[in-house]
Structure formats: C-alpha cells, structure tokens
Design a protein around this nucleic acid. Sequence first.
DNA 1: TGTCTTTTTGCTATTATATAACAATAAATT
DNA 2: AATTTATTGTTATATAATAGCAAAAAGACA
Lengths: 146, 146
Amino acid sequence: MNAESLLQQAQLVCQQKGARFTKVREQVFLLLANHHGAVGAYDLLAELKELEAAAKPATIYRALDFLSKQGFVHKIESINAFIMCHHFGECNHPVQLLICDQCGHVEEIQSNNFDLALRTMAETNGFTISHQIVEAHGSCKNCTNV
Amino acid sequence: MNAESLLQQAQLVCQQKGARFTKVREQVFLLLANHHGAVGAYDLLAELKELEAAAKPATIYRALDFLSKQGFVHKIESINAFIMCHHFGECNHPVQLLICDQCGHVEEIQSNNFDLALRTMAETNGFTISHQIVEAHGSCKNCTNV
DNA sequence: TGTCTTTTTGCTATTATATAACAATAAATT
DNA sequence: AATTTATTGTTATATAATAGCAAAAAGACA
Ligand SMILES: [Zn+2]
Ligand SMILES: [Zn+2]
Ligand SMILES: [Zn+2]
Ligand SMILES: [Zn+2]
C-alpha cells in the first residue's frame, strides 16, 4: 500500500472519529509512510526539519503520540523506533513484530491465536492484559539465505 | 527464594562457566535480588553509590550487562527497567513478563508452548528468532480485585 | 459575529537512559 | 617475571523523552 492511499485511509478514520488530523500530524504521517523500515524519533525530526525548520523534539513526540493513539503507528520498544501500521482501522489490535537485526526490516504479524494464547496464559495467573508487546529479533527470510 | 541463596546459586553458575563474579557485580546482583519489583538503572546506581561512592553510570551498566549475559537478570524494554530472574541456570530461556501498571509487580512466566507458538509463527514467515521480547501490561490479581 | 472554552502548537529548558573512549588496575596465562 | 586479557575508573557525550508555560488556532454557542 502506498503512502497516498494510506493517508486517505487515515484521513477517513480521523473524520469518522472527529480527530483533528492537522498539518504537522499529516507531515509526520507521510514521512513514516514513506519509510520502509522503522525509524527513530530524532531521525524523523531531522526529516521533518527539512519541511518545518522550527520543529523541535516535542513536535515529533506529540505527533507520534497522536498517531499512536489513532493506531496508525506502532512504537517498537526494543529499538526505540516507530513504524507505520498497515492494518489500522481495526484499532487497538494486538501487534506482533518480527525484527531483522541484519537488514532492519520489520514485519508486522497479526495472529489472533497468538493473542489468545497470551491472554489465556495471563488469565491463568490472574492477570488481565491491557496492552501487549511482542517483538521477536532474529534473521529474516532474505538475510537467512545469504 | 531469598537473596543469599540466589547469590550462592549465581556463584556456582559463574564458577562452572569460568565467569568472574567480581565485587561490583555481586553488589549489583544483591541489590537487584533484594528488590521485589523492577528497578531502573539509575535508581540502582543511587543504591550502589551508598556502598561505592565513586560508582558512575558505566559501572552499573557494565554490571547489568554482565548479569544479563549470565542470564541472572532480564531487561524490561517497555519500562527501561531490570529485574532479577528466579529461574536462571537454564540459560537463555525465553521470557514472558506480566507487568502490573497499578502496583508495579512483575511476574515472570515460562511457557514453552508459547515460545513454540512464536517460533512456529515466525518460521511460517521465513523468520528465525534469536531473541524474543514478550511483555504484557495490565492489572495483576491483587489489583484487579480491588 | 463576538465571546468563551478546548485543543494544538511554539518554545525553552530539563530529565532520563545509555554508550564511547582511553588510561589505570587487576587477573590470568605463559 | 613478563605478557596478554579482562575489568574498572573517569570524563565526556550521545540518544531518547518530557515538563511547563505562553501563543495561536479551532470548535462551541449565544
Ligand atoms: Zn498494526
Ligand atoms: Zn533481513
Ligand atoms: Zn528468567
Ligand atoms: Zn498489581
């Protein structure tokens, strides 16, 4: 899915929810959408500065915060980076990420079975999950065969 | 398991592996073992400073690095904190953590089924896992019933 | 439209987390 | 004892994220 159609989809979601998809937020959204892999907040800020010279850390973190809340973007905790979600709309979906340590490629998986397994395991321990982080590091298809 | 017996177990493991369990490393180990929940590196540093006034960030991070490599300690990526492992020995075991956002309690689960499910899912995508991060946030038994 | 309220942004500073680089010690090896 | 390797001390710096407050913009409503 290309950046433009992702943007349109996001605009639609915001319209339906009454969320304000402002200029900065759109700019950051597009920068993320045009990235193939994950990107750090300060790298993103550097890119944003080419469009808005006055941008500061708070600018990018606020935008990322908004985009995360809408479910457009996921934070990758283990590498302090952010990545565009390609299945947003079904908001708050559980996320499983496969992160290649060789090439940096990140694949987002959506396994409801897996989510259920985690929930069940938690319930066995009397624990109720509100948010889950599943990040697998290793070697992707391309990098393994090399 | 109390701090002293954990320490003895760790000493044994180090002896078997020929790893040098130095003074600083033992001090940090004991500080962690006496913590019930997770603890941040700089909080730990503050505690260490009461024993070794000259301790610096590098001191604590080096010790944590050593302890992690031995499998004595796990880093919790989503909250930038560290926690003593209570099942070390079986080194490099997969870790699943249940983190209570109310009381801060962290429960370490060991589900081989879950590990297998994740590996299988990854393999389906041609991905080989070297290290996995599974951190579930939510409400623990005690905090849910309140 | 004008007024009021809420949300968003701009801006400065600061906090929090983690590592680099290199010299000095200490321990292990020969 | 001499040499090599691992660990520590020390200073500085890199990297990541938030606090606080005023200005501006947008939304709500008479
Ligand atoms: Zn997603
Ligand atoms: Zn790869
Ligand atoms: Zn463990
Ligand atoms: Zn709790």
